[in-house]
C-alpha cells in the first residue's frame, strides 16, 4: 500500500469490476421482474432497449391478478415446495450417511456398491423414465386408505425415487475425504459409535457441502417437469414447472408469463438466501477446519 489516494482508487476500480459483473448476472432477472408489471404491448416494445429494466410506463399488478385467475398458482408453489423440501431433507440425511460410510468405513461390498453408485451418475433420467413409470404404477403403498397399488397421483411418487442419487453421495464422499481422518480415528479409539461420530464430529464440519448438496437437490427437484407430467394427472398434485404450461396458450400473455416466472423464482431465491446465511456465511467468517 502506497498512499491513501492510490488505495482509494484501487478500491473504486475493484468495486466497479464487481458491479459490472453483477449487472451482467442480474439483468435478465431484473428484466423479468420489471416486465411482470407492464402490459403485454409495452413489455414487448420495451424488451429491446434500456426501458426493459426501468419501472416506467403503465405499471400495475394486473398481470399478477390475471395469472392467479388463470391457474392455481399457490397450489402449484405449495406442491413444489412441499415435495422439494421433503426430498432435500431426506436426501441430505441418506446421502450424507452413505457418503460417510463410503469414506470412513470398511465393509463387505463397499467397493462394488461405490462403483455402482458412481455409474448411475451417468444414467440420464430421461432414459429410465418409461421403465420407472411402469414400475411406479405397480408399487404398493400403505396410506390412509390402507394398502393400495400404484403410486400415481401422489406426493410420494414425486419424492421417493429422487431421494438418493449418485451426485449427492459423491459430493459428500469427496468432501469427507478432505476432513482430517485423525479426528474420526481418535473418536473411534475413544469408543464413539459411528452414528455419534457422524452426528458429533462430521456433520458440524459439513456446512459447505450440506449447503451445496441442498441447493443442487433443491434446483433439480423444484424444476421437475417430465416426471410429474407422467405420474400426476390430478391438478391437486401438480408442481410449478407443469403449471408453467398453463401460460403458453396460443396467444401468449407475456406479462402473465413474467409474473408467473417471478412468482416461482421467489421461493428459490429465498431458500438460497436462507442457506447462505445459515451455512456459507458462517463458514466463511469463522474460517473453520484444516
Amino acid at each position: 500500500m502506497t498512499t491513501n489516494d492510490n488505495h482509494g482508487l484501487r478500491l473504486i476500480v475493484r468495486y466497479l469490476v464487481l458491479i459490472l459483473i453483477a449487472l451482467m448476472f442480474c439483468f435478465p432477472l431484473v428484466f423479468m421482474i420489471i416486465s411482470s408489471f407492464k402490459p403485454d404491448q409495452q413489455l414487448l416494445l420495451d424488451s429491446g432497449n434500456i426501458r426493459a429494466f426501468l419501472p416506467v410506463g403503465d405499471l400495475s399488478f394486473d398481470n399478477y391478478s390475471e395469472a392467479f385467475a388463470r391457474a392455481p398458482i399457490a397450489l402449484f408453489i405449495f406442491n413444489s415446495v412441499f415435495v422439494t423440501a421433503i426430498t432435500v431433507t431426506l436426501s441430505l440425511l441418506l446421502c450424507s450417511t452413505a457418503g460417510f460410510a463410503f469414506t470412513f468405513m470398511e465393509w463387505r461390498g463397499r467397493k462394488l456398491a461405490l462403483s455402482i453408485i458412481l455409474a448411475t451418475l451417468i444414467v440420464p433420467f430421461q432414459a429410465i423414465a418409461i421403465p420407472l413409470l411402469l414400475l411406479a404404477s405397480k408399487l404398493p403403498w400403505i396410506g390412509m386408505d390402507g394398502l393400495t397399488w400404484g403410486w400415481l397421483n401422489s406426493y410420494h411418487v414425486q419424492i421417493i425415487p429422487f431421494i438418493a442419487d449418485g451426485l449427492t453421495i459423491y459430493l459428500f464422499a469427496q468432501y469427507f475425504k478432505d476432513l482430517p481422518g485423525e479426528l474420526i480415528e481418535a473418536a473411534r479409539v475413544e469408543g464413539a459409535s459411528w452414528w455419534q461420530i457422524y452426528r458429533k464430529v462430521v456433520m458440524p464440519l459439513s456446512g459447505p457441502v450440506l449447503a451445496t448438496a441442498a441447493i443442487l437437490k433443491f434446483l433439480a427437484m423444484y424444476n421437475q417437469y417430465l416426471w410429474p407430467l407422467m405420474v400426476v394427472q390430478e391438478e391437486g398434485y401438480r408442481p410449478v414447472m407443469v403449471g408453467l404450461q398453463y401460460f403458453f396458450q396460443l396467444n401468449i400473455a407475456w406479462g402473465e408469463v413474467m409474473a408467473y416466472l417471478s412468482l416461482i423464482t421467489v421461493p428459490v431465491l429465498a431458500f438460497y438466501l436462507y442457506l447462505q446465511k445459515a451455512f456459507i456465511a458462517s463458514i466463511a467468517s469463522t474460517g473453520v477446519k484444516g
Binding site: I130, L133, L134, A136, S137, G150, L152, L229, M230, V231, Q233, E234, E235, V242, G243, Q245, Y246, F248, Q249
Partner: peptide, 20 residues
C-alpha cells in the same frame, strides 16, 4: 381433470402406459 395443452398428449400416453 384439465391439463395444459402442451403437456396433454404426453400425459395421456403416460396414463395409458400406467393403465390409468
Amino acid at each position: 381433470q384439465s391439463f395444459p395443452q402442451a403437456a396433454y398428449n404426453d400425459s395421456v400416453v403416460a396414463g395409458a402406459l400406467a393403465g390409468n
